[in-house]
Amino acid sequence: MARYEFQAVRLRTGSTDSDGRLVFIDGELAAVLVLLADDVHGSSRGLWSVEVDFRFVLANSPLFTSLYDAAAWLQERNSEYVLK
């Protein structure tokens, strides 16, 4: 069972999306999440978005209602992604 830790950080995104979390999976920094707050995001406000994912730099990510769901998704994607 992977261990998730979240550390609150302020992000400078040039918008009001500034409430961020560093996501550690088993002690390793895996991603930076941001809470969508800016009104440009419409109905997605209040959801967590993957701002940076250190392993899948350019892939598109879904939005999450909770930090735990986001971390579980990151963890699952990391463990499923095996180059054959």
Binding site: G14, D38, S44, S49
Partner: peptide, 14 residues
């Protein structure tokens, strides 16, 4: 443009 909806929203706003 290869941008997520979050980033295109912010870019258009800028």
């Amino acid at each position: 443009t290869g941008l997520s909806s979050v980033h295109i929203n912010r870019s258009m706003r800028t």
